[in-house]
Design a protein around this nucleic acid. Structure first.
Lengths: 229, 229
DNA sequence: TCAAACCAGATTGTCGACACTTTGAATGGA
DNA sequence: TCCATTCAAAGTGTCGACAATCTGGTTTGA
């Protein structure tokens, strides 16, 4: 179901790899509070491991921009600001636009059929009860995930699926962001897939960018009214 | 001069950070051959350090996609394929296009003046002797580097300057790629800066994307004629 | 009373050593 | 001669311990 969780084989042989996945999940889901310090002795003891593998995992988290580290002081979970959320949306607009273009050129017809089936399922879910917005939001990520996979560009896939999507999920988990535009989003998704099915890369990119831009502007509106930070 | 080297304070307090920078530079410049295995005991001894900090540095290199690591086997420097080079150009097209758009909206007038001065200098260099294509190529990176900085989007800056630009430089160093379109590139650079100076984000993005696309197509032509891989 | 120096405790950075896995060659049998 | 097995050497993964640094509170002096 959850396509994002896939990159973790969960039975990797080395402790450092496993702990990296655990910590990333804990940070993304907010089980380790944003901005909190991660003490090496305490964390190592809690996980029942030594500090060596833990430090290796921390270095990878640092490279993913999930923790900030200062020499001789320690590592803290990043704090989420509204500005950074907007930054991510802008990058996604550019990157996923390109992904949609490439997917239109290179995706297999079978893959396109799969996505259409996914959207059909989303349509049924939304028709049943609209309030399941959060669930739909995860479905939204599923959709984007598949488009990116369809691009076939390994490095593009890596940037989005290994780093940015985790960050986006972190924002969703922590701010409890609920989409109030599930219907509009589904409509836009369908237009994107139509363009891909027509092998119209230019249109697919245009539609994807417009879709993500709309999401961003929606978030910006919410942030402006919610709390004046 | 070399704006890329800047992110290395070079006197970071921890060994792991320093070694990370050293190894990244050595890999990018080809001093550690592509595809070669990096032995931990040997490398640690050569650098006069222990294996602990070295492993931390390797984990960061792994996260930067500069080395591939397999548990219980070891780490190898990535091997460069033509396909991956094209992948990077496609990502740069999307990302730097967005950067140019943002720079047009947010860059300071002083920063724009600086870039204009840089281009003026490039113009003089090219007028003197065109064969200094490689030098111009580094200048080309300088230009792109400044545009990205001008975007003000910290995460965008990080993706491009911390990861992609090092990879791009790695390709240039290893394949000894020489630009045969310095004059065209300069012209395109000037059009981009003009659009930014006019605060026309849409045009700036369009021009930047066209510029990078032209570079990519030029490389594709060279690769097609050079060696039929 | 306030500020600067100081000191103890804890934390990070680094190292050397041990256990487990892989690798490659040598050995033995068919 | 060729293939499977065995075994030793090297390398990776992990751990515990020591040195260097930071933190916060206490003491001391003006």
């Amino acid at each position: 179901m959850d396509a994002i969780a896939q990159p973790l084989p969960e039975e990797t042989s080395t402790i450092a790899d496993r702990v990296f996945g655990q910590l990333r999940l804990a940070i993304v889901e907010g089980k380790i509070p944003a901005g909190s310090k991660i003490s090496e002795p305490e964390t190592a003891a809690r996980l029942g491991i030594s500090r060596g593998p833990l430090r290796e995992a921390m270095r990878r988290l640092e490279a993913c921009n999930l923790v900030e580290r200062r020499p001789n002081i320690g590592a803290r979970v990043i704090t989420l600001s509204n500005e950074q959320l907007i930054e991510i949306y802008l990058i996604r607009e550019a990157l996923e636009g390109m992904a949609a273009r490439l997917a239109a050129e290179r995706m297999s017809t079978a893959g396109i059929k799969d996505i259409k089936a996914l959207l059909e399922q989303h349509r049924r879910e939304i028709a049943r009860d609209d309030w399941q917005a959060y669930f739909q939001k995860e479905g939204d990520m599923d959709f984007h995930y598949r488009i990116v996979q369809g691009s076939g560009n390994q490095r593009l896939i890596g940037i989005l699926c290994d780093d940015l999507y985790h960050l986006a999920r972190m924002y969703r988990c922590q701010f409890g962001m609920v989409s109030n535009r599930a219907r509009d989003a589904l409509k836009e998704h369908e237009l994107i897939v139509d363009a891909i099915a027509e092998r119209d890369g230019e249109l697919a990119e245009l539609m994807m960018r417009r879709h993500i831009r709309a999401s961003r502007q929606n978030v910006e509106r919410q942030l402006a009214t919610d709390t004046t930070t």
